[in-house]
Amino acid sequence: MSAPRTDPTAPLSNRHAWARFRWIMRWVSVTAIAAVGAALFYLWADGSPLTVAVIIATCAGVSLSVLVGGGLMALIFLSSGSGHDEEVGKIDEPAEDPSARWDRRDR
């Protein structure tokens, strides 16, 4: 596991990335509520019977779909903003002491 990012020259700090993640998730939650309302309005306007089961299934299906999609998008921004994406491409320098290698195999 890598150490937390402490580079002061980084454009976005972890705190800023998490704040942006929470901000995005707030708007995704508002969007999910609006999507549930729109779906229920559509079912009502269409003349579909709105039983308790239909309302619960619609609320659960629409809200979870919007929240999962928005949450995954927000995680992409969190990963990019916290510096995890840049660390993937870095190659560690080989250890000078052969006994310090983690795999212990001969080359």
Rank of each mutant, 00 (worst) to 15 (best):
S2C: 07
R5W: 01
T6V: 13
D7P: 04
D7W: 04
T9I: 03
P11A: 09
L12I: 12
R15H: 05
H16I: 09
A17G: 02
W18S: 09
A19H: 13
A19V: 05
A19F: 14
R20V: 10
F21R: 03
W23T: 11
W23I: 05
W23F: 12
I24C: 06
I24E: 10
I24F: 03
M25E: 01
M25A: 02
V28F: 03
V28W: 03
V28I: 13
S29E: 08
T31N: 05
A32F: 00
A32C: 05
A34M: 10
A35E: 04
G37Q: 07
A38G: 11
A38P: 02
A38D: 10
L40V: 14
F41C: 14
Y42R: 11
Y42M: 13
L43N: 11
L43T: 02
G47F: 11
L50C: 14
L50H: 05
V52S: 08
A53Q: 10
V54M: 10
V54F: 08
I55R: 07
I55F: 01
I56L: 13
I56H: 02
I56W: 12
I56Y: 06
A57G: 08
A57K: 01
C59V: 12
C59M: 14
A60I: 09
G61H: 00
G61N: 00
G61W: 06
G61Y: 02
S63G: 00
S63L: 02
V66P: 00
V66H: 00
G69Q: 12
G70L: 12
L72Y: 03
L72I: 11
M73F: 14
L75M: 08
L75C: 10
S79P: 03
G81P: 02
G83H: 07
D85E: 13
D85T: 08
D85R: 01
E86F: 04
E87S: 10
V88P: 05
V88L: 15
V88Q: 04
K90S: 12
K90C: 08
I91V: 15
D92L: 15
E93Q: 10
E93G: 05
E93A: 10
P94T: 05
A95W: 02
P98V: 11
S99R: 14
R105D: 07
R105Q: 06
D106T: 13
